[in-house]
Amino acid sequence: MTVHQWHRDTIGQKAVQALIKNQFDAVYFPSKEEAGEYILKFISPGAQVGFGGSMTLTEGMGLVEKTKAKGAELLVHGDPQLSAEEKLEVMRQQQICDVFLTSTNAVTLDGCLVNIDGNGNRVAAMTFGPKKVVVVAGVNKICKDIEAAFGRLQSIAAPKNNKRLNLENPCTITGSCANCQNASRICRIYSVLKKKPSLTDITVVIIGEELGY
């Protein structure tokens, strides 16, 4: 085992234990392949499966394709073939789907999930609605505490997502949040889950690799 893998395993497992203490179901896997096999166990043929616009799940793990192969009905609002009205309807359907797969912008070492959203559909579905929520994150998203997590949102998650979406906001030039007032601003809803939401079945999967933003 390399020193890098030792460190990833150590902080990943520490975050999992903190999440469990905060009443989340949480598991750790060293690799995305192992984690992917575990996540797919929640998917059954015919199930409606929503995807929360996560680069971790799409680029990092290929879960959209694997979920489709299992015969599930996919709810992917980021499909470029959808009209604005169709996209909105998919986002509404995600709120009551069978399984909602998403990532989180940050996980703290004291077991909190910290997120930032533009429309709020992702954090809404993560909090209440779907029968099952699976939150997936690489160890690169683990932060010391909530303050550090918000720093990560401003310096990493928000600028990278703005750049990915080709938005003309200041952070795509400076690389960090400027608390802009632009109409195209996507940093509008901030969410901190300090404990598992009472009526939501959530499993948090931490992976010992760097994935997503």
Score class of each variant (00 low, 15 high):
T67M: 05
G52S: 13
K41F: 00
A69Y: 07
Y38P: 09
S54G: 04
L82N: 03
I39F: 11
P80N: 04
M55G: 12
T67W: 05
K32W: 06
I43L: 05
E33A: 12
A69I: 00
E33V: 14
E85V: 06
E89P: 10
Q48D: 15
G62Y: 03
G53H: 07
G71T: 08
T58N: 11
G71R: 08
G53M: 09
G60T: 02
L40V: 02
L75K: 12
E33K: 09
G78Y: 13
G71I: 03
E73Q: 14
H77G: 06
E34F: 03
K68W: 06
M55K: 13
V76A: 01
P30G: 03
A69C: 04
E89D: 13
E85T: 11
A84H: 11
T67R: 10
S31E: 09
P45S: 06
L57S: 04
G46W: 04
K70Y: 12
S31C: 05
K68H: 14
I43M: 07
E86C: 05
S54K: 03
V90Q: 12
K66T: 00
K87E: 12
E85Q: 12
F29P: 11
L75G: 14
K87Y: 02
E34M: 13
E37L: 08
K66V: 02
G53D: 02
I43W: 02
G36T: 11
G46K: 05
G78A: 07
D79W: 07
V90N: 13
S83E: 05
T58H: 14
S54D: 00
L82W: 00
